[in-house]
Design a protein around this nucleic acid. Structure first.
Ligand SMILES: [Mn+2]
Ligand SMILES: [Mn+2]
Ligand SMILES: [Zn+2]
Ligand SMILES: [Zn+2]
Lengths: 141, 141
DNA sequence: GAATTAATTTAGAATAATTCTTGCTATTGC
DNA sequence: GCAATAGCAAGAATTATTCTAAATTAATTC
């Protein structure tokens, strides 16, 4: 058996990428989400990624987004029945949809507070996932 | 001009029904939502309403649900990208989806608490609508 | 490093929830 | 009762998303 250092080996899955092999397409999709954190739809991502990968297909963009979500690198955000949007912010946060401009803003949780303090959860409920979506208007101050 | 009491007049829109004319179909759809508050989908409602209105169409169920939502009698509840569900509970509340059984439970807000206390809202944000969706498991106690 | 195997991507077809269109029916206002 | 309006049913259309199958690329084995 050869020493471990000389054996050819695939790049190990880092904790960062959640064990997902970072192909060119997946990396570009992920980079695009982190470059412009405006909660783009799959089609938005598709149009943007074409600049660097002109031959990428929409199906691949959907595949990449699905994998990034499954591996916990990206969050999928749904407002009403609109197209899903994608967000690389992994901190616990909600979303505010400004009906005036159509933009979506991240909403942090105040430190030291717990959502469960505000809610009357059913007996025995163990929360695995929290989704908070707000809609309204953003007025100039 | 005849006295008001003798003139034939349509049933006035009550504050309860939000100005919506309550046709047979709308009434049955609404009654079904209030009878079983299990957050049924449009198809669920369709199947149930057929007992009393065997000729109703799915399109009509969708129309009725849309109108009931627009007029504020019913809330539309979306989890992920699943079919919309419908809820006649008009109190401010969130939803807990038990992944074990697939059931959806209403989650009241604790009296005297304010969600805004837990969130760092963007400057100038005026909230018109709040959606809180929780997912997890309900353990027997 | 060529052959083999496995994973990924692509293009287009399929799916499914929802919405739209159209002709018909019921209700309303007069 | 009659014209105008509103509502309904059936099925077609829409659209975001998923699936399928073939081609490409990458990894593994020899
Ligand atoms: Mn967009
Ligand atoms: Mn159901
Ligand atoms: Zn976000
Ligand atoms: Zn509810």
């Amino acid at each position: 058996m050869l020493p471990a250092t000389t054996r050819k080996r695939r790049k190990p899955a880092s904790p960062e990428d959640g064990g997902l092999r970072m192909t060119r397409q997946r990396q570009e999709v992920y980079d695009i989400l982190r470059a412009h954190r405006d909660h783009p739809t799959a089609t938005d991502v598709f149009l943007r990624v074409k600049d660097s990968l002109p031959n990428i297909s929409l199906a691949t963009v959907y595949n990449c987004l699905e994998l990034l979500v499954e591996h916990g690198l990206v969050r999928q955000v749904n407002f009403e029945r609109e197209s899903s949007r994608f967000c690389p912010n992994l901190e616990q946060h909600g979303h505010f949809h400004d009906r005036g401009t159509g933009t979506i803003h991240d909403v942090k949780f105040k430190p030291g507070t717990d959502l469960a303090d505000v809610l009357e959860l059913p007996q025995g409920a163990v929360i695995q996932d929290i989704e908070i979506n707000l809609r309204g208007l953003l007025h100039q101050t």
